[in-house]
């Protein structure tokens, strides 16, 4: 069986180099000789509900609303079918019950996880560092978002923020982890800067992975972490 990675609506959700996450996941599989397909779903394409791993990136207000309408119930169906999701920034917000839009509007999200996003007075911009709640190295990314995100139920954050804002609302946490979903405010893209996160997500989808020799990503990770410390 060939693994299928889905890049959801890059024209709408891809403001911060988010396609990099898909490219890195694919590259890490390729280097290990693991067969897979990358399916880029554009505006007007039908969204598969039986793929293995879905990627959602960041986007501006209008684009986020459009993406939400287009995705509809398909991603929830895919998750019900056992799919995994990696969602960043606007894509992370989309997974929740509501998110804010221009003019003080509140827009209904995909409702896949019990989180809600509200608009904050100041934009969160800059390097973000967090201590992960999963057994991997310190997480590093760059955040740039106006919304802040609240858990509506008991949920596991992806990390405890040591530099930057993350989910905000004085929570000191970033992102979220469930059985199938990883959400975060880290772009950069996150999987380029955090090779261990990339492999952790991939191993949840396909099981144990052989180690990969890819020094440049480890060097990049260390450099970024040390640049903030």
């Amino acid at each position: 069986m060939t693994l299928t990675l889905v890049h959801l609506l890059p024209e709408l959700l891809g403001t911060y180099g988010d396609r990099g996450n898909v490219e890195i996941a694919s590259w890490r599989l390729r280097e290990r000789g693991i067969k897979h397909d990358v399916l880029t779903v554009g505006i007007g394409d039908s969204i598969p509900t039986t793929a293995d791993l879905y990627f959602l990136g960041g986007g501006e207000d209008d684009a986020q609303i459009k993406a939400c309408q287009i995705v509809g119930t398909s991603l929830a169906k895919a998750v019900n079918n056992g799919a995994h999701v990696f969602a960043v920034c606007a894509g992370f917000q989309l997974l929740g019950t509501t998110f804010p839009a221009s003019g003080g509007r509140t827009v209904e999200g995909l409702g896949i996880v019990p989180i809600e996003t509200v608009s904050a007075k100041t934009r969160s911009v800059g390097e973000i560092l967090s201590k992960p709640s999963i057994p991997i190295a310190t997480l590093t990314g760059f955040e740039n978002h106006a919304g802040q995100t609240r858990f509506l139920d008991e949920l596991q954050p992806l990390g405890v923020v040591t530099n930057g804002i993350g989910n905000g609302l004085d929570t000191n946490i970033d992102g979220l982890v469930t059985e199938q979903i990883v959400g975060t405010y880290m772009h950069g893209p996150a999987l380029a800067r955090n090779p261990e996160l990339a492999d952790w997500i991939l191993s949840r989808v396909i099981g144990d992975l052989v180690p990969l020799r890819a020094e440049v990503f480890n060097e990049l990770h260390n450099e970024r972490v040390n640049s903030v410390k």
């Binding site: 891809g14 911060y16 180099g17 396609r19 990099g20 490219e23 800059g126 760059f142 893209p189 380029a192």
Partner: peptide, 9 residues
Amino acid sequence: GKDTSWMWD
């Protein structure tokens, strides 16, 4: 710009 994520675009 302090954010280099544009590289992936």
